[in-house]
Amino acid sequence: MKVSSVVWLTLVWVLLWGTFTPLTLVGGVVVAVLVLWVARQAPSTDRLPVRPLRLLALVGYLVYDLLVSGAEVSWQVLRHGPRACGAIISVPLLTSSERVVTLMASALSLAPGAMALEIDHDAGVWYVYALGPRGASDVERTWLRTMDVQRRVLATFGTPEELARVRRLIEERVA
């Protein structure tokens, strides 16, 4: 049981009560320990690196992305409606860390009209659904956007090798 998990769950508990008293604090610790004991998991071996500036940049990008994403989906609804098209494309998956994959899928699902559909660890591929593409050039743009999200997440949480690989793949595709 990790101390950081207990602290985090206790914080959530105190925030849920909305009051900071000894009772909510102790109750929070009890509940946190209980929850972590019930939902025991094998200790994960991979540690996420801490890069505060990169993390801040990623959060900033996601907020910006959420605004663009909301506007784009709304546009599809108003402009095309029942005739709106989509595409399911495969994109290389460049990390083996379960945590980073989870973060990547979540980050992508906030991005413009796209979401992770299926993740194939063995083949190193993930399948992404995107709302909007109507032709081959749109599909290409979706691929690049997905890789861009992947690049940003790997810049924050990945290893330098993974980041270099994603950069190289993007450059090869653009060239």
Partner: peptide, 11 residues
């Protein structure tokens, strides 16, 4: 019919 491409189904 509403998908431009479905690479998951191809796979």
């Amino acid at each position: 019919e509403v998908l431009v491409v479905d690479e998951l189904a191809e796979e």
